[in-house]
Amino acid sequence: MSEQNTAEPVSPQDREYLHRCVALAAEALAEGDEPFGSVLVDPRGEVLFEDRNRVKDGDGTRHPEFEIARWAAANVAPGERSGCVVYTSGEHCPMCSAAHAWVGLGGIVYAVSSEQLTAWRSGWGIPPGPVTPLPIRAVAPDIPVSGPDPVLAAEVRVLHARRHGVDESN
């Protein structure tokens, strides 16, 4: 069964945070980077930390989800981490899923799945990345997951199409 069939749907409240993630992804794209953005939210709904992709200079580990895990490890008490949620424009890669689980963060809500992104890239003739795009639950099976969000998927697709020079105006 695919991740899309096992994840919970995105709520209207979740979508508010996902809008910020998509804005961060657009910011990353404007800076010449891969279009991904993420925010860490505490149980009260306060955004604790946010970041965007920063891999353009050659460090492929500078994903915003990984940066969130590192920031949380240094700044959020271990007993409070499981109540925090990471919102992200794209589903965590295996590296970020593992970091999320090792740090002990709570749920993950994403706008588009790895399955969607992989299908888009394949359809555009873009070769696959260096790491197999596993769903979050294949790496960290106990993390609650919500997504993808059909409302934001088209917007995220446009960002990725632009990144790869794909004209989807047809």
Rank of each mutant, 00 (worst) to 15 (best):
V158N: 00
A69W: 00
H19V: 12
P12N: 10
A26M: 08
A72E: 04
W71K: 03
K56D: 07
D167L: 01
P150S: 10
P133C: 15
R20K: 11
V145T: 12
D167F: 05
A119D: 11
G129P: 05
V86K: 00
P144M: 00
A119I: 04
G90V: 15
V166M: 06
E50L: 06
V166F: 01
V55D: 02
H164I: 04
S169W: 03
G79D: 14
E155I: 00
P43I: 14
E27L: 09
S169A: 09
G125Q: 10
H92C: 14
V131Y: 14
G129R: 10
G107W: 01
L24D: 01
L18C: 05
I68L: 08
Y17K: 07
A101P: 09
T88Y: 03
R163D: 11
V158S: 08
Y17M: 08
A138K: 12
R62E: 12
Q116C: 04
D57I: 03
D167M: 00
C93F: 07
G58A: 07
P78L: 07
L40Y: 00
S113D: 04
V131R: 15
T88G: 01
G123Y: 10
P128L: 08
P78N: 11
G45I: 05
H63A: 12
A119Y: 05
R20A: 03
A74G: 11
T132M: 13
P78T: 10
F66A: 06
A101K: 11
G165D: 08
P144F: 01
E27K: 08
Q4T: 14
W102D: 15
G107A: 14
D14E: 08
A77M: 12
S146A: 15
A77N: 13
L134Y: 10
